[in-house]
Amino acid sequence: MRKLDFSLCEVTHRDCSTDPAGFTGHDESYAVMQLHAAHGPECRRFLAAQAHFSAELDD
């Protein structure tokens, strides 16, 4: 398993108003949730990361 580059994640997922193109896996979606946790319900990055993270837990 490759180590997630958190600083790259910050740059790639900085815009809360756009939908992310996708996540490389569980680690990336978790990191995005951490980065955007305090942004509120309009943060599309947090909502997408949470959905991806939850879907992986269901598998």
Rank of each mutant, 00 (worst) to 15 (best):
G25E: 10
H13V: 01
M1G: 12
A31T: 05
G22Q: 06
Y30C: 03
Q50C: 15
L35G: 00
A51R: 13
F53I: 07
M33A: 09
A55F: 10
G40L: 11
V32K: 00
S17D: 02
R44F: 06
F46N: 00
C43S: 15
G25T: 14
D15H: 01
P41N: 10
A55N: 14
F6H: 14
L35D: 03
A21Q: 13
A55H: 15
R14Q: 07
V11T: 09
H39L: 06
G22E: 10
E56N: 09
H39F: 08
L8D: 11
G25R: 08
D58S: 10
T18L: 08
A38P: 04
P20Q: 05
C43E: 06
E28T: 06
L4G: 02
A49N: 07
L35H: 04
D58Y: 07
F46G: 00
R45V: 04
S7M: 13
R14N: 09
K3H: 10
E28S: 02
M1P: 04
A21V: 13
H52W: 10
A51M: 15
L47I: 07
T24H: 09
P20D: 03
P20K: 01
V11C: 05
E42I: 03
D59T: 12
R2S: 15
D19R: 01
E28V: 06
L8W: 07
R2Q: 10
L47Q: 08
H52D: 14
C9M: 07
D27W: 04
E42K: 06
F53T: 02
C43K: 04
E10D: 08
A21G: 09
C16R: 01
S17H: 00
D27F: 03
L35S: 04
A51E: 14
D59N: 15
C16I: 04
P41S: 12
A49P: 06
D5L: 10
G22H: 03
G25W: 13
K3N: 14
A37E: 13
Q34V: 14
F23D: 00
A48Q: 04
S54C: 09
E56F: 11
T24S: 13
H52N: 09
D15L: 02
T12C: 05
D15M: 01
A38W: 08
Q34E: 12
K3M: 12
V11G: 01
H36T: 03
S54N: 12
P20R: 01
H13P: 00
C16A: 11
A51G: 12
C43L: 14
S29M: 04
M1N: 09
M1A: 13
R44T: 05
R45Q: 15
E10N: 10
H36L: 07
A21W: 10
T18G: 02
V32F: 01
A31V: 07
G40P: 11
L8C: 08
R45C: 11
R45W: 04
A55S: 15
E28K: 00
C9A: 13
D15A: 02
S29K: 01
F23H: 00
D58K: 12
F53S: 03
D58I: 10
A51P: 08
H13S: 01
Q34I: 11
R44A: 03
A55E: 15
